[in-house]
C-alpha cells in the first residue's frame, strides 16, 4: 500500500543543513500495524509528516496505492489527506469553541458534504467511540481520554485507509492511554492501516511490525540505543 523509495528530507537550521531523513526505503502493506520508534530528533515525526502528506521529501518517491503522491499539487494532496488519511495527535488539536460533534464534522465540512448527510456520519463515528452522549460537549468539558476519543472519531469519520497517530497517548494517564491504544488497535483489526509514532517501548512492542529510526536512518528495532 505504501512504498517509500530513497526518501531524503533535510532542513537548514541556522545555516547548517540537518538531515532529518536519510535515504529511507520502506514498504507498508495495507492493514498493517506499524510502530515507529526512536529517540527525540531521530526523524520519526518527520517521517510521519511525509507519510501524511503534511511535508514533502527533499528527494525520493512516495507511492500510495501505486500512485506517486509526491508529484501531486498542494490541492490534490489536500484531497488525499481529507479522503484517505486520518490523523491523531498527541495534543488532540480539537477546536475549543466547537462541540465534539462539530469537531468530528470538520473533515466532512471541508469536503463540502451537505449538513444533512454529515449528521448521521458524525453520530455514527461518535457512537462507535462511545461518545454519543457527549456530542454537544465542548472539549473543555471532556477528560483527556474523552478528548482523544473525539479526535479519533474525527480521524475516522471519512473512513480513511490510513490512520497516522503521533504519540497518541503522550498526554494521557496510563489508564486512558491503554484505552486509546485498544481503540486504535480495534480499528486496525477492522482493516485500517495504523502507523503510530511513540517513544514508549511498551506501546511500540504491541505493534505487529516495528521500525526504529536513529539519526534519520532505519535501524534494527531490537537493539537498544
Amino acid at each position: 500500500m505504501i512504498e517509500l523509495r530513497a526518501i531524503n528530507r533535510s532542513y537548514s537550521v541556522g545555516g547548517q543543513p540537518v538531515r532529518a531523513l536519510d535515504n529511507i526505503d520502506l514498504d507498508i502493506d495495507a492493514g498493517a500495524y506499524l510502530s515507529i520508534m526512536g529517540p527525540s530528533g531521530s526523524g520519526k515525526s518527520t517521517l510521519l509528516n511525509i507519510l501524511g502528506l503534511l511535508d514533502r521529501p527533499s528527494s525520493g518517491h512516495y507511492r500510495l496505492d501505486g500512485h506517486d503522491v509526491t508529484a501531486l499539487s498542494d490541492l490534490e494532496q489536500a484531497q488525499v489527506r481529507n479522503q484517505r488519511i486520518g490523523f491523531v495527535f498527541q495534543m488532540f488539536h480539537l477546536i475549543p469553541r466547537l462541540t465534539a460533534a462539530e469537531n468530528v464534522a470538520l473533515p466532512l465540512l471541508l469536503a463540502g458534504v451537505a449538513p444533512g448527510r454529515r449528521e448521521p456520519l458524525v453520530a455514527k463515528a461518535l457512537q462507535e467511540l462511545d461518545m454519543g452522549d457527549r456530542a454537544h460537549h465542548k472539549p473543555e468539558q471532556l477528560s483527556g481520554g474523552q478528548r482523544q476519543r473525539v479526535a479519533i472519531a474525527r480521524a475516522t469519520v471519512t473512513e480513511p485507509e490510513l490512520l497516522l497517530a503521533d504519540e497518541p497517548t503522550g498526554n494521557l494517564d496510563h489508564h486512558s492511554g491503554q484505552e486509546v491504544i485498544r481503540i486504535l488497535e480495534s480499528l486496525n483489526s477492522r482493516g485500517i492501516t495504523l502507523i503510530m509514532v511513540t517513544h514508549d517501548p511498551e506501546m511500540g512492542r504491541r505493534a505487529s511490525r516495528r521500525i526504529k529510526l536513529v539519526d534519520g536512518r532505519l535501524a534494527d528495532p531490537d537493539v537498544a540505543t
Binding site: 501524511g52 498542494d74 489536500a78 481529507n82 479522503q83 488539536h93 471541508l110 469536503a111 474525527r154
Partner: peptide
C-alpha cells in the same frame, strides 16, 4: 496557528 494547521491536516487547501 494550531487551528489553521489542523484544518490543513484535515484537508483544507491554502485557498480555503
Amino acid at each position: 496557528t494550531a487551528e489553521i494547521g489542523l484544518l490543513k491536516a484535515l484537508g483544507a487547501p491554502a485557498g480555503q
